[in-house]
């Protein structure tokens, strides 16, 4: 299958290894990966902070950048949710029904990584090997906006030599929340404290999730406490092989 990768601005700028892992994984599964060269950002930060009308140009740009894509995958649930739920609504509110229709169609063929693997490609066993003890943080937007359910867990459970351990209070938010982390830093940090404590309590060597933004928050808390527990994106685990 020809699959277009929406890297997301955060992965593009800060976590290129997550993009490389996604490319490697999809190629190993026999698919052709394209990376539309004009892509930038889905505008989620604007949309969620009340600057939606400001982001109309960003949305238009995104729709144009991916116009030729048949199937799009992004290693981020919150960016997919922004594309799938936010873009068309914004275009409609701005009185651009044409753009809204295009955005809606693009949203329908844009998938978060675990959705793409399980629902579109029909695989849970991706040939990965990861000999580590891993705990899984189900990010809020994967859980509640995309409702990916147990898809990531099924993928992880099929990874050879991976030991999956429970994360206490797994479904509680890590406290990132985009600009929330800057607008309400005390509350964000208090939520992070509890998340880090739970990660440490889990006994895992690796905390994984499907969103680099949440992992940036959790990872930032772990290294600040000089913890040896690492944060690793789902794509990197699934791309890992013998």
């Amino acid at each position: 299958m020809r699959i277009s990768l929406m890297a997301t601005c955060l992965v593009d700028a800060m976590f290129p290894d997550v993009g490389r892992a996604t490319v490697g994984l999809l190629r190993r599964l026999g698919h052709r990966v394209e990376v539309p060269a004009e892509q930038t950002c889905c505008g989620q930060m604007h949309l969620n902070t009340g600057y939606g009308p400001r982001a109309l140009g960003v949305v238009r740009h995104h729709v144009t950048a991916f116009a030729g894509a048949e199937v799009v995958v992004a290693p981020s649930a919150s960016c997919v949710a922004s594309v799938r739920h936010g873009h068309a609504a914004l275009a409609r509110a701005a009185g651009e029904p044409g753009l809204a229709a295009e955005a809606e169609a693009l949203g329908a063929r844009t998938h978060e990584l675990s959705e793409l693997l399980v629902d579109v490609l029909g695989v849970t066993e991706v040939g990965a090997w990861y000999p580590h003890r891993v705990t899984w943080h189900p990010t809020c937007h994967s859980l509640r906006l995309l409702q990916v359910g147990d898809r990531p867990r099924r993928l992880l459970e099929a990874v050879e030599d991976l030991e999956l351990v429970e994360l206490p209070g797994a479904e509680q938010c890590c406290g990132f929340g985009g600009t929330f982390a800057l607008k309400n830093p005390a509350v964000s940090s208090a939520m992070l404290d509890d998340k880090v404590r739970h990660v440490l309590d889990s006994g895992a060597a690796v905390c994984s999730a499907g969103d680099s933004s949440c992992l940036m928050q959790i990872g930032g808390g772990l290294t600040r406490r000089s913890s040896p527990v690492r944060t690793v994106h789902l794509a990197e685990i699934l791309a890992s092989s013998r």
Partner: peptide, 29 residues
């Protein structure tokens, strides 16, 4: 400031040497 609100309680990763799309252009494609 304003990013001190972040680094007061957590680290940020060091920016990478090149972006993902640069990697793609240079060797990924």
């Amino acid at each position: 400031p304003p990013l001190s609100a972040w680094t007061a309680t957590r680290d940020l990763p060091r920016p990478p040497e090149r972006s993902f799309l640069d990697w793609w252009d240079e060797e990924g494609r």
